[in-house]
Design a protein around this nucleic acid. Sequence first.
DNA 1: GTCTATATACGGATAGAC
DNA 2: GTCTATCCGTATATAGAC
Lengths: 198, 198
Amino acid sequence: MRLFLEKGYGSTSVADVLRAARANSGSLYHFFPAKHDLLLAVLERYRSEIEPRLLAPAWRGVADPIERVFALLRVYRRLLVETGFFYGCPVGSLALEIHEPDPAVRRLLAANFERWAGAVRGCLREAGDRLPVDADPRELSLFVLAVMEGAVMQARTHRSLEAFDASVRRLRDYFRRLEKGARRPRLRPAPAAKEKIR
Amino acid sequence: MRLFLEKGYGSTSVADVLRAARANSGSLYHFFPAKHDLLLAVLERYRSEIEPRLLAPAWRGVADPIERVFALLRVYRRLLVETGFFYGCPVGSLALEIHEPDPAVRRLLAANFERWAGAVRGCLREAGDRLPVDADPRELSLFVLAVMEGAVMQARTHRSLEAFDASVRRLRDYFRRLEKGARRPRLRPAPAAKEKIR
DNA sequence: GTCTATATACGGATAGAC
DNA sequence: GTCTATCCGTATATAGAC
């Protein structure tokens, strides 16, 4: 997982994996008949770790569903900073690296995106009528994912947070405007949304 | 260029290039001492072609500056459809494929993003006070680029336009809300923006 | 500048003893 | 299941005649 994240799939040789895992050729090939199977296993694990290793820590102490969306984005920001813009979104990188139309790989990449966007969608549904009815949660969740991937891509390329922060700020602005335009659940003007986190 | 777009940099062998160009090893290496230099040349050409081969055709017959932003996105949509989700944004793909910290390559990738976002920024500036003053054109342009790249990534992965169209629709919604919130430049309500294209 | 032939290393994958 | 040794193709790059 670490090697594919750091160097990508194609540039990681099986020899690299053997060295990093301190395993021998025969052992590795006993469990993974081809390098390809290694990729499938990695993508499966990414998917299964979205919940416990990404969402759970990101949302610890963040109750507000819309804040959770931005707490998730903050994880990627921190990852970029902490690794000197070396790590980004592992799934996104692999998605653009793999050009072969291998159906099994594509399915797993799609499943990763689906789970990520599905989690965001859950937040948006939970936000209920703080968002206008025409702001379809499914559409919005795919939009949030697009912004995250594009923001990470730019950050890694420029080795700078500017584009990332700018994108998140504009997304935040969009959500603010959506909330303002939503039908009011209260009789009195809503109190300013809590935004202390961060 | 075509090979890097179709197969990526790493998976394209020099032999592939030789075959496609109907050239011989000696000839190619006479002009490009290493494969690496081929990548640099391709990235330079992408940058120089953004204006004449991407923006100019995209904006033919589209005068409204904000419509131009969406006309640009439509080019990527059409590219995805026409190639069966094979081609996306060549720069974005290379940006995520290349993990080496090669400064020359990174600079050129960044320059490509910069020119693209710069063009969008020009549109937004031209839109003047149809957008609110707090909608910084620089921030907005980086946001638009992020949305495009993330939308293309999802489209290619799912081999479907759903996420792409959803993202563009949400971006459109954002711009509508921005325009609504801007201070009105005219005394009478502005006539509906031209949107005949497409 | 272009041609053919080739150097040299490394890629994924396998053989077969233990 | 794990070990060492190795097969064989393909990779980038070069040599040297023309």
